[in-house]
């Protein structure tokens, strides 16, 4: 589930981040502020909104997404897109003016300039993806509300930790927590390794 939501969020967030980063119009500041606000979106709020949309009285009830993995993925994608967009935007904003000016001076097309911007953002792309994946792994508020933590169906590690804690099974909860931490360590080590290789 975390893989699916992070990949979908990456596919949407990268173009948005590159476009926002390279955009220099008057409304850029407002768009950046809106995105940064969405980056801090509380997961339970996203969970609540998705719950209301997908529940029996919601406008999207006919999609039958409540308490499904698909519904959980949708909630996570909503949370992750602003994070990935913001991560790319911050990088692209710093390099875009020089890249754009150099590329225009060479007579390159707009499409080519966007591809060059993507090429210059290799590290940030991976970093943004892993940031999203890490957030998806660790997220609990939205997935528990939309997924319902149903055993063998929508129960993920974070919701399982919550359930085990409520049951007083602290050892199991702690073990799952350590596994989550280990996953985070591996992801961050991967980013560091990639950064080192790209910088060589």
């Amino acid at each position: 589930m975390a893989l699916a939501s992070s990949v979908i969020a990456l596919a949407a967030g990268v173009p948005l981040g590159v476009l926002l980063g390279s955009y220099s119009g008057r409304s850029k500041r407002a768009l950046v502020v809106i995105n940064r606000t969405l980056m801090g979106l509380p997961p339970v709020v996203v969970g609540l909104v998705c719950y209301m949309l997908f529940s029996g009285v919601g406008p999207l009830r006919h999609l039958r997404l409540l308490y499904t993995v698909t519904g959980m993925v949708i909630a996570q994608v909503i949370l992750l897109i602003p994070l990935i967009t913001g991560s790319l935007e911050a990088h692209v904003s710093t390099v875009a003016p020089d890249i754009r000016e150099t590329a225009l001076g060479l007579g390159l097309s707009r499409t080519r300039i966007l591809l060059l911007l993507l090429n210059e953002s290799q590290y940030q792309l991976v970093s943004a993806y892993l940031l999203g994946l890490g957030r998806a792994f660790a997220e609990v508020g939205a997935v528990s509300m939309v997924g319902g933590a149903i055993a063998y169906k929508t129960n993920v590690m974070t919701t399982a930790i919550m359930n085990y804690t409520n049951m007083g099974a602290f050892t199991t909860a702690l073990a799952l927590g350590i596994i989550l931490l280990a996953i985070s360590l591996v992801l961050n080590a991967g980013v560091a390794l990639l950064h080192w290789r790209l910088e060589r």
């Binding site: 020089d98 150099t102 001076g105």
Partner: peptide, 10 residues
């Protein structure tokens, strides 16, 4: 053709 002051090495 234009070479800016901070021409970018891609």
């Amino acid at each position: 053709g234009y070479m800016p002051q901070r021409s970018y090495p891609f």
